[in-house]
């Protein structure tokens, strides 16, 4: 396993090099900000036609993880689709690819700010998920504790290498974006430095999940 193990509010979690979170005890896999259908949304709005492979690529990587870990529950932490129309416009091949994944296990779509009402593609939809001791929601609540969230697409720079990363402190974990066409927000951005405690870690994604002190 290429992950980094850590405790959060008593739960033993693993940050995977792929950017997904694994909760072994619950057999729960969590990914954030898939942004499926991003290229479709872009051209729909009069922009250029990006290579339309990001949905396939994101789903292939997700399917690989599921095949290895065999989770009982998959949680998509919001912004799973680039917008509502993008979820409706998903090509048939990718719809069935997704449908196959959501079968035979519990699948939860958490609402994001891009896709407040996830489409009817199987699975349950909820605003937040409480699974003691943790709470899963899209955007971090500064007052919360034991919280897993996404939204910010954090990335961090070490040795002139910039990579998507998890951010972790005593109260919360923020996941990197799992989608193929996603950018990142530097960990030094005030939005993140004000949210995370002083001794926070950034866990870099890559061949090996690498913890470093969060660059501020």
């Amino acid at each position: 396993m290429t992950g980094y193990d850590f405790p959060l509010a008593g739960a033993r979690l693993t940050a995977l090099g792929s950017g997904a979170l694994w909760w072994a005890e619950q057999r729960l896999l969590c990914v954030s900000d898939l942004h499926l259908g991003k290229s479709e949304r872009r051209i729909r709005r009069g922009g250029s036609a990006l290579p339309p492979y990001e949905t396939r690529d994101t789903l292939v990587r997700l399917a690989e993880l599921i095949a290895i870990l065999q989770p009982d529950t998959v949680v998509c932490l919001g912004d799973s689709f680039d917008d509502d129309a993008a979820s409706r416009a998903l090509p048939d091949a990718e719809k069935s690819q997704l449908a196959a994944l959501t079968q035979n296990r519990r699948w939860i779509w958490i609402a994001g700010n891009h896709d407040p009402a996830p489409a009817d593609l199987g699975g349950e939809q909820m605003a937040e998920l409480h699974l003691a001791p943790l709470t899963f929601r899209h955007i971090a609540d500064p007052a919360a504790a034991a919280e897993i969230s996404g939204h910010y697409h954090p990335k961090a720079r070490v040795r002139s290498t910039s990579r998507p990363c998890f951010l972790l402190d005593q109260s919360r974990l923020i996941l990197p974006a799992f989608g193929t066409y996603t950018g990142g927000l530097r960990s030094s951005d005030p939005a993140l430095t004000s949210l995370m405690q002083r001794d926070a870690l950034a866990i870099l994604t890559g061949a090996q999940a690498l913890p470093v002190p969060m660059p501020r």
């Binding site: 036609a49 990006l50 290579p51 492979y53 950018g183 951005d189």
Partner: peptide
């Protein structure tokens, strides 16, 4: 294919843009 300037986007570049390297990697793969 890549639009450096989009109406109103330059101001708040956070998360909105992702590296063109990703497009390159995607094309090379698929």
């Amino acid at each position: 294919l890549i639009e450096r300037n989009t109406p109103g986007a330059r101001k708040n570049g956070r998360q909105a843009t992702f590296s063109s390297d990703i497009l390159y990697d995607t094309l090379r793969k698929y």
